[in-house]
């Protein structure tokens, strides 16, 4: 069995342990089924919440097995599941014999009111996470709220359960509960405070800021003296916090590494001006410092060494992991065939155009390129329109078997391309995508 399977089993065991232990060693007091369900919802829901801190803490062992984007999606799904269970907890207790007063009365003991507050904060936290984009909540603001609410919810839930949870009178459950509580708080403090502090003590230096095309910049970073660039796979990404002074914002963001790992003196990310923070990226100057946490991601041709024929589909700035892979193939003289389908709005938006042409002139990799423009100018003689099933068929010359597809770009484009590829008979296992947004 793969390590990811073992980790998933461990995850389930950690979550269900309190319920199992309570069922085995707890008292049978003749409660109703709904009451017992309500209690189990709390035991499971709280464990799910506690483990959230570990899922999101960027641990390499988890990241290597699943990929960071997948972990964060899973974290989100589990957050929703925890809310459902923890809303079910008071409802089922009330229906199972506790009475409606449990839900509506406000003159309840502090440990019940603490749980109500915790549940309210949890609902707010999950709603903000799901709808952050729709209500245009800025990433940094959302993250600060998330970082304040999450530990508060855990603390409120912990004290509520220690005071009122009858199953926590079973010694093994009580111990387990306390150990998990201390552990997740420690993980949270490490992830949000200790590790950033450690990283900030060894800052990287900006050595280059280059404009690629309109609103797209490549920032090159050099490791601290005496330190080499970390080992990474082409296509992986890094978390960067720029410290630029001059009143420019200090925020941590993640960007794909667009440089080739075959060149070890520096590392580069190509960044598009998309939001409030990235709008300032062109104001970064050589000599500025940055904190770097890397590498992350499972989107790399190096993870599938047996593949010989690859199709890259890039939408706009989604070219970054793919150019990293093409550069690596060039530098290592890889014996591979690659078809690059590169979609952009206009001709002026095609980043790395000359470099891609030069790679296509060589033999390593054997690269052919299709530029597809949705809004080309009058002088454009190449492909025009949006990538669809018919175009895919034509560009791939109706040959889909034995090829592996790497897609990176805006989510609607990726979703449409995945659907089209499946209709054309490409197996799930041969489609790799990078989930572009994490929230």
């Amino acid at each position: 069995m793969k390590r990811s399977h073992w980790l998933l089993i461990l995850y389930l065991l950690l979550i269900i342990f309190p319920v199992l232990a309570a069922a085995l060693w707890g008292s049978r007091m003749g409660n109703s089924f709904l009451w017992e369900m309500g209690r189990n919802c709390a035991l499971t829901g709280f464990m799910l919440l506690a483990l959230q801190a570990i899922l999101a803490a960027r641990f390499q062992v988890l990241e290597r097995s699943f990929g960071f984007d997948i972990l964060i999606r899973f974290h989100k799904h589990m957050g929703v599941l925890a809310v459902v269970l923890l809303i079910g907890h008071p409802l089922l207790l009330a229906l199972g014999g506790g009475g409606m007063g449990l839900l509506v009365n406000l003159d309840l003991p502090w440990y019940v009111m603490a749980a109500k507050l915790g549940l309210l904060l949890l609902i707010v936290n999950v709603l903000l996470s799901i709808f952050s984009e729709r209500i245009r909540l800025k990433f940094e603001r959302w993250r600060l709220t998330h970082d304040l609410l999450a530990p508060a919810i855990i603390v409120l839930g912990f004290f509520h359960s220690r005071r009122v949870g009858s199953d926590l009178r079973i010694p093994i459950v009580r111990w387990y509960w306390t150990v998990m509580f201390v552990l997740v708080l420690a993980v949270f403090i490490y992830h949000r405070w200790i590790r950033p502090w450690q990283l900030s003590r060894r800052p990287w230096k900006v050595t280059g800021v280059k404009k690629e095309v309109d609103r797209v910049w490549t920032v090159t970073l050099e490791p601290p003296k005496g330190q080499r660039v970390f080992d990474y796979l082409p296509g992986q990404f890094q978390f960067i916090t720029f410290h630029r002074g001059r009143g420019l914002p200090v925020e941590e963001h993640h960007w794909t590494i667009s440089s080739s790992p075959a060149r070890r003196e520096s590392v580069a990310s190509t960044i598009k001006e998309l939001g409030d923070f990235t709008a300032t990226i062109g104001q970064t100057k050589p000599g500025d410092t940055a904190t770097v946490h890397a590498p992350f991601g499972r989107f790399s041709y190096r993870l599938r060494p047996g593949e010989r024929e690859l199709v890259f589909v890039a939408g706009g700035i989604g070219i970054t992991p793919l150019i990293g892979m093409l550069r690596h193939m060039r530098d290592t003289r890889a014996d591979l065939s690659v078809l690059l389908i590169y979609a952009n709005r206009g001709e002026g938006d095609i980043a790395f155009r000359q470099e891609i042409d030069r790679i296509a002139e060589g033999e390593h990799p054997r690269l052919s390129v299709v530029h597809l423009l949705s809004k080309p100018g009058d002088g454009w003689s190449g492909e025009r329109g949006r990538l669809d099933r018919d175009r895919l068929k034509r560009y791939c010359q109706d040959r889909f078997q034995g090829r592996t597809f790497y897609l990176c770009g805006p989510p609607p484009m990726i979703d449409a391309t995945v659907t089209a590829l499946k209709e054309l008979g490409v197996a799930d296992g041969r489609i790799e995508t990078e989930l572009f947004t994490f929230l």
Partner: peptide
């Protein structure tokens, strides 16, 4: 594809958790 695997995993975890909530509750009311 990893996204499909994620959805499958999420479903598996949800089913496992629901089972582990219902069965112990049934055991305890016996």
């Amino acid at each position: 594809m990893r996204r499909t695997k994620l959805n499958r995993t999420t479903r598996l975890v949800i089913v496992a958790i629901v089972v582990m909530i219902v069965i112990p509750a049934l055991l305890r009311i016996r």
